[in-house]
Amino acid sequence: MTLTRIGNEHLTVEVSSLGSEMQSAVTSDGASWLWDGDPAFWAGRSPVLFPIVGKAPGDHVSIEGIRYPMGQHGFARRSEFELVASGPDFCRYQLKSGQASHLIFPFEFLLTLEHRVVGRAVVVTAEVTNVDHRPMPFGIGFHPAFVWPLPGSAELEHTIVLDNAAEPELARLSGGLLLSDTLPSPFSGGKLTLDHGLFAADAMLFPEGAGAGLRYAAGRKAVHFTWENLPNLAIWSKAGAPFVCLEPWHGTAAEVDGSDDLAERPYSEILGPGAIGRYSFKAEFVG
């Protein structure tokens, strides 16, 4: 595992070759905005989820009628990526299919992750290229964890406000799989006040209607978080843990009592031969 440091006069970001995962985001005032990966709570920081998001029934998926082992959130987050390009304010890592990946995901693919610092923001872009001769089903998502409380905001109320002011229906998990029945939205006029009790039943999922942006804030400190080509949103923390994950996805966990076929998972992406899918998020640190 190696680290690549990128940045400008406003923001410094470190990215690991393992999973092409962002490890830190520190503004010029010394404030750290990204969760530090303390394994006492959760060792992740900002993993990419590929080729599935969430769990599969019995930790297996079916592809073209054949069952393959597949752990939660896929294998990219635990794979070593190759650094293929970098500069003062960006780095680009790639993961290519190979003998090991073929045993669990029988497609030729290329996954490219770019981290780029722009002002006081980091932009993370994933490109999935189907190098195979047949359509390729998969899920992809981001899982960045931001500190909770925000820097210098320990005594303040923390809120998440959706840019579209919507009240999307809530979905929950059972044993890591998606329950089909939805619940009333915890948002009111697009606003949610964070409380650790919200996560006593695991993540909050919003399969539809959350839009493409939100503001996670406490007083004058905020993360303005936007995303593209990712229709699903999850918000997660462990009860009592000092982080909150803002997770835009294209694909969710398999449904309870649903199919284990990868192509039939909710919101699965299916790329044709030679096609490229692009997915991104931007986190701007304010205050």
Rank of each mutant, 00 (worst) to 15 (best):
H224K: 10
A241I: 00
L170H: 07
E228G: 14
F225A: 01
S188N: 10
L18P: 01
D132Y: 14
G209I: 03
A263V: 07
L150W: 03
S32K: 09
G176R: 13
S17G: 12
I160G: 00
P88N: 15
F90S: 02
N8L: 07
E169M: 14
V13M: 07
M204R: 00
S24F: 14
A171G: 10
V118E: 15
L49A: 04
G274T: 06
G37I: 02
E108K: 12
A25Q: 03
P273H: 06
K238Q: 00
S153N: 06
L170Q: 05
M70E: 00
E247N: 05
F109Q: 12
A165F: 13
S62T: 11
L49T: 07
A200M: 01
P106L: 09
Y279H: 08
L49I: 04
E208A: 13
L179P: 05
L111P: 06
G176S: 12
Q99M: 11
G152W: 02
L177R: 13
T159L: 08
S17D: 14
A222S: 08
S280T: 01
S259C: 08
L156M: 09
P57I: 02
L183K: 13
A56E: 04
L34T: 04
F225T: 00
G219I: 04
P242D: 03
M22E: 02
G277F: 11
H143P: 03
G258R: 01
T112V: 03
Y279F: 15
E247C: 02
S17P: 05
V61R: 05
V161W: 14
S174C: 12
A171V: 00
I270W: 08
F75H: 13
P51D: 07
G71L: 11
Y93N: 11
Q99A: 14
D36V: 01
L173Q: 09
D36W: 05
G44C: 05
